[in-house]
Design a protein around this nucleic acid. Structure first.
Length: 224
DNA sequence: GACCAGGCACATC
DNA sequence: GATGTGCATGGT
């Protein structure tokens, strides 16, 4: 079976199990951007608490975040962990948008994938995954998001090797799958659903929707 | 109490 | 270029 066929069949198996995930959770493009930064190496439930604090403080706006001092912002996002560094990262992102587009986040996001990548990546605190998450889920433009779960699952199933870097795994998905925004959005969400339950360091893979696809249990010892 | 989470930047070698 | 480390709360 070709890689393309395998990836499509994997998606169908995950979708049949979990249903459409409706990603990204959040109300509007700015919340998606905020969530993308807050969820770095952090459980989404903790991000939700931080987002609720921001909503309660009426701080989900470019101007509010731009004006807010570090201590106040850090206090609001405290439940998401790494609150000092994430407050700086959020500020960096907001400052960048504000300087070029004022409060118009939609105008900032309404540009090509490559333009957004070139603008987002140099911002301190926005790495490859966070940039791609913002582009896919906030700007709604086709770029595939690779995360730790994606790498684990692709290595487990022999579709990627440990030496592959972010761009190589990303390229495999982007050249194999039809370029459909909703498919790319939900594919990543399905991978996270599988990863959370079946591809954590000590999780058992019994009952995994991908169990019937060829996989190498020995590869799991390298999962990190 | 230990381990992990939808990363990233920076220091060091 | 590769590897190690700090950042931190909250759920399991």
């Amino acid at each position: 079976m070709s890689t393309a066929q395998t990836l499509v069949e994997m998606y169908e198996a995950m979708l049949a199990r979990f249903g459409h995930q409706g990603w990204w959770p959040g109300d509007g493009p700015l919340e998606v951007c905020i969530g993308a930064i807050l969820t770095q190496n952090t459980n989404w439930k903790n991000v939700e608490k931080a987002l609720n604090n921001l909503r309660g403080a009426r701080a989900v706006s470019i101007s509010a975040l731009h004006q807010m001092d570090h201590e106040t912002l850090a206090g609001l996002i405290r439940p998401a962990g790494y609150y000092n560094i994430k407050a700086k990262r959020l500020k960096n992102f907001i400052a960048h948008v504000y300087e070029s587009y004022g409060e118009d986040i939609e105008a900032f996001l309404d540009r090509s994938v490559s333009t957004l990548q070139q603008e987002l990546m140099p911002i301190n605190g926005i790495g490859r995954e966070t940039a791609d998450s913002i582009i896919l889920y906030a700007a709604e433009r086709p770029t595939f998001v690779i995360d730790r779960y994606t790498c684990r699952i692709m290595v487990r199933h022999g579709l990627a090797c440990l030496e592959d870097d972010y761009e190589q795994v990303k390229d495999m998905f982007e050249t194999s799958l039809p370029e459909e925004l909703d498919l790319w959005k939900d594919y990543h969400a399905q991978i996270v659903a599988v990863g959370k339950q079946y591809c954590r360091p000590k999780a058992k893979c019994d009952g995994c929707p991908l169990e019937s696809f060829p996989h190498d249990p020995a590869a799991d010892q390298f999962i990190q």
